[in-house]
């Protein structure tokens, strides 16, 4: 007698969100009616995608093997973005780090220049994050938003204490807003509701559930994402936005991905360890529902893309 495969009858569906457009390449994420990669119980119309994180200025304090892997392009965001796309990036994720008051404290004009350079350099969709200082975020993200009107950027992050300006600007220019709550399902849902109250359509929202790296909070992120995904498939339309995880940012700032001196021999070689630190963070969070993973190392990009392909059954 054949074994009867137990499938869940989900009533909900993850929303489809499209980035890009306005004559530029598009990428659509979401649309699942099944738990991650469980093809036997629903449809997964769009595979998870890989965004590669670049900075608008030379990175400071990044792990040595990571900077080395990119070479000279780290001095020029446009060249960096190009190389990222050559290596397989579906999306380029640019952090406007130079705008941080403790960095160069750059403003609207510089952010617009960077955005235009990137638009010229690559045709994939772009995501911009600010320096995560509220007033500077509002300044530079609105500037980018205006300069790229109609081209389907994603802008973040919107947090409960600072989301109005960014959401309003996304609404005005047809962009996608990324909302982030601190690893908490109810706060994430509440933030989605608040953002929608401003008039932005739910399918112009991505959720950043706050990423914890392997060994540094991964398990919390993993479980919150599983809960968000279960709620969404269970029919909760305010948790059904696709999820984005800033994997590279978290993984590469941990000691395991940075230090080779004075660490136990049992840690093995730094570069391989660092890459695997990022890969395992990425693939584990994909199995909890990540639709966009933001990565840093070229080899991780390659491995994660090949893993996605295999998980999608091709």
């Amino acid at each position: 007698m054949p074994v009867e495969i137990p499938t869940e009858k989900w009533t909900g569906k993850i929303r489809e969100v499209t980035l890009g457009g306005g004559g530029r390449k598009t990428v659509t994420v979401g649309g699942e009616t099944a738990l991650p990669f469980l093809h036997f119980e629903g449809s997964i119309p769009n595979r998870p995608v890989v965004a590669v994180q670049i900075l608008d200025c030379r990175p400071d304090g990044w792990s040595e093997p990571l900077v080395r892997a990119w070479g000279d392009v780290v001095n020029d965001p446009a060249a960096w973005a190009k190389k990222a796309v050559e290596l397989g990036a579906d999306i380029v994720f640019c952090t406007l780090a130079s705008a941080h008051p403790e960095n160069q404290n750059t403003g609207a004009a510089e952010a617009q220049t960077t955005a235009k350079k990137l638009l010229d350099a690559v045709d994939v969709p772009l995501i911009f994050y600010g320096p995560e200082v509220s007033d500077k975020d509002n300044e530079v993200l609105v500037a980018v938003s205006d300069a790229t009107s109609g081209l389907g950027m994603a802008l973040g992050v919107c947090e409960e204490k600072n989301y109005r300006t960014i959401v309003a600007s996304c609404l005005a220019n047809g962009h996608v807003a990324v909302g982030r709550a601190p690893i908490e399902i109810n706060m994430q849902k509440q933030l989605n509701i608040l953002m929608c109250d401003l008039g932005i359509k739910p399918d112009r929202i991505l959720m950043d559930p706050t990423t914890g790296a392997l060994g540094y909070g991964l398990e919390y992120t993993y479980s919150v994402m599983e809960r968000l995904r279960l709620a969404a498939l269970g029919g909760d339309s305010m948790t059904s936005m696709p999820m984005l995880c800033t994997v590279g940012h978290e993984a590469w700032r941990q000691k395991e991905a940075k230090s080779s001196d004075g660490v136990p021999e049992a840690w093995g070689s730094l570069e391989e360890r660092g890459i695997l630190w990022e890969e395992l963070t990425a693939t584990t969070l994909m199995s909890a529902g990540a639709d966009i993973v933001v990565l840093r190392h070229p080899r991780t990009v390659e491995m994660v893309k090949s893993t996605i392909k295999k998980l999608m059954g091709s």
């Binding site: 049992a266 093995g268 070689s269 391989e272 695997l276 693939t283 090949s306």
Partner: peptide
Amino acid sequence: EEAVLAGQHIAKYAGIVVLDHFSPETVYP
């Protein structure tokens, strides 16, 4: 790649995972 798949098995329900390769930088993660 073996380590990445082993990671999937650890998260999703394996009881015993048999590794063909051993190196500190893959087993520590």
